[in-house]
Design a protein around this nucleic acid. Structure first.
Lengths: 316, 316
DNA sequence: TTGTAGGCGTTATCAG
DNA sequence: CTGATAACGCCTACAA
């Protein structure tokens, strides 16, 4: 085979094909070095092991892989310092795009500057920096909270407490605003005494807030919680002290986590389109990356739906 | 400043420091190309958005990042074909190590061969290939199932059903073996009629198996389920048809997912040391990688503890 | 000790 | 349009 004089194109092709069939694999590292960009999309979230966020990650992984990209995960544990470290690590590892949901603590956003200056596409999802001119994919938290609160009012609730998160986070500010506006709209008073803003809205916080509320002189008849974890623990505590759900106290949560169907009675909640949200975020990252010139920062707002279950059904 | 003749070492250091302070960053891609290996550990799991697995991922991310590595995630969705594709993608992206928990469907393991030949460290966790001589981190499924079943027997159960997963997966085979041996040990009969092996042990499967069981002529008094999802749905169905838990039917699950504390009554379960498991797996990957010569494949077995809650407490 | 040349495997560029 | 060549930035090895 060695001395054949003229090697035809067909042969060359066959050789190449063979090379591929044998273990040849394109070295994407060399390609990255030469092209000065990787195939890795970073994803920075507060926690990995929470139902809403693990759905975000699951969706991101699927969307990214389908487009030929990897997803690098890191978690801030809701700490601002961790977030800074993780962003730096992503910057140094030269991710080609970043999807972020902010740590509860985060109030300033300078740690993203280098990445932004560098031209790396960043898309914020869910927990976003309100006043920064960046790409965002969010839900209409105001409308969702308004609808959830209104639903409680329609079910006959007249004194509704609210469990929120850190107020500097837009999503919690907006949820509170929606809650307050729904009360106002129905001529119900806003009472600071029954509005809480937890540090992380944990199960434990939910329990403590509920214990406090149920000890107040004027009785509650509703709770709108900004997550399901706190709402579920509110139900558990209330039941444990003989408060009947929803007859005495109607409770609605947020996110529509799987636990909504486990708790008794099943928990009404605001459905969160996590998978749609992150699929769009991945698309945005890739679109921004591909486009030659600067893409104007845009905010994409997704609709939500209140999912009504027994925990709020006091009528028909 | 320009014409200073002799530039001292201090100055040079200062210059270097400045370079770092300005945007200089080590290019890990160039380093990877040169060293012929990346800093990315692949992680292949059936699903991302399940409590047990999202804890695995969370632990892996933390352990890997602490050691200076990234984690690349992909999910097989319990499909063998997806698993093959994902392993191939990892191979081509030149991960420096891989942590795998097998897809429910997977019965053969040839798709890992190229990675193994290539010398890439692979550590299997939880759902492992039984007869392959590879690195594994597992729990003692046999002992866990034995203890869980024995606990039911001690609580007075005499006719205990079992919900398992695909029998070609060692973990489910071992859990069944532990269940059967505990029955035998206490001179209880093994009845194939009340032993099920679901495709994925979903909520829906749990419900259907329970409905079937409760329609059998001879009544059950216990269920040992190989996961919590099916166990929780068993409880919900049983309650819905007036079967009292645990008085009529004691139920114990597996994994100790957060839903164990949400369901009423709280679900007894086998605690799964997911975070320890994956932390060890990351350590193993790095250890194998560093060691010059071939490391003998070893299996690390972690202990489990039965977490007893109301769903099985029929005595004292 | 300190300094420098070469090559990792691509891709972009430029010459033919 | 095809084909050769340099450069991406780091690490290793060898020379001074």
């Amino acid at each position: 085979m060695q001395n054949y004089p003229s090697i035809g194109k067909a042969t060359i092709k066959a050789v190449k094909k063979l090379a591929v069939d044998r273990g040849y694999r394109l070295n994407s590292i060399a390609a990255s070095l030469r092209k000065r960009e990787t195939n890795n999309i970073g994803m920075l979230v507060p926690w990995i092991n929470r139902p809403f966020i693990s759905s975000l990650i699951s969706g991101a992984e699927a969307a990214a892989r389908a487009a030929g990209y990897n997803v690098l995960i890191s978690q801030s544990h809701d700490s601002h310092d961790n977030e800074i470290d993780n962003v730096k690590a992503f910057f140094e590892s030269r991710i080609c795009g970043l999807i972020v949901s902010l740590a509860m603590e985060t109030k300033d956003y300078e740690h993203f500057d280098r990445l932004i200056e560098n031209g790396t596409p960043i898309v914020f999802v869910d927990r976003i920096p309100e006043h920064l001119d960046v790409h965002k994919v969010i839900i209409d938290n105001y409308a969702a909270a308004y609808k959830a609160t209104q639903h409680l009012i329609e079910q006959g609730c007249r004194r509704i407490a609210h469990f929120g998160g850190a107020l500097h986070q837009t999503i919690y500010k907006e949820r509170r605003r929606g809650y307050e506006d729904a009360l106002k709209k129905h001529d119900l008073p806003i009472d600071e005494e029954i509005i809480f803003h937890g540090d992380v809205l944990s199960a434990d916080e939910g329990l403590k807030m509920t214990a406090h509320l149920l000890n107040l002189p004027s009785p509650l008849d509703g709770i709108f919680s900004a997550n399901d974890t706190a709402a579920v623990n509110a139900i558990q505590y209330a039941k444990s002290v003989g408060v009947s759900i929803p007859a005495d106290l109607a409770v609605i949560g947020f996110n529509n986590d799987p636990i909504c169907l486990i708790i008794d009675p099943p928990l009404s909640s605001v459905g969160h389109p996590a998978v749609d949200m992150v699929r769009i975020a991945v698309q945005q990252v890739l679109r921004i990356k591909k486009s030659e010139d600067e893409v104007i920062a845009q905010t994409i707002t997704l609709k939500t739906k209140v999912v009504i279950r027994t925990s709020t059904l006091r009528k028909g």
